[in-house]
Simulated assay, not measured.
Amino acid sequence: MVNYEELRTVKQLAAEAPFVTEAKLRWWIFHADTNGLNAALIKIGGRVYIDRAEFNKWLEAQRLAPKASAA
Rank of each mutant, 00 (worst) to 15 (best):
L59E: 00
A40R: 09
Q62H: 00
A14G: 00
Y4T: 04
F55S: 03
Y49W: 15
N35P: 12
E5S: 05
A40L: 09
A14T: 01
A61G: 09
K11E: 13
W58F: 13
E5G: 08
F19K: 00
Y49S: 11
L7H: 01
H31R: 14
Q62T: 08
A71R: 11
E16W: 04
G45C: 10
N56T: 07
N35Y: 09
L59S: 04
Q12A: 15
I29L: 08
D33G: 12
S69A: 15
H31L: 10
R8Y: 05
H31D: 13
A23I: 04
A14Q: 02
L25K: 07
R63I: 00
V10F: 04
K57F: 00
I50R: 13
A17K: 06
M1D: 08
V48D: 12
E16H: 09
Y4D: 09
I44N: 11
R8T: 01
F55M: 06
G36F: 08
F19D: 06
W28L: 13
T9I: 03
E22F: 11
E6Q: 14
E60A: 12
A71T: 07
A53T: 11
A68M: 10
E5Y: 06
R63C: 00
R47A: 12
K57S: 03
P66M: 11
L37R: 14
A15D: 09
G36Q: 13
N38C: 12
A71S: 09
S69W: 03
V48G: 11
A23K: 08
T34N: 13
V2S: 04
Q62A: 00
A39I: 14
E22R: 15
F19G: 02
V10Q: 01
A65E: 10
A15Q: 12
S69H: 10
D51Y: 02
G36Y: 08
W28G: 01
K57A: 05
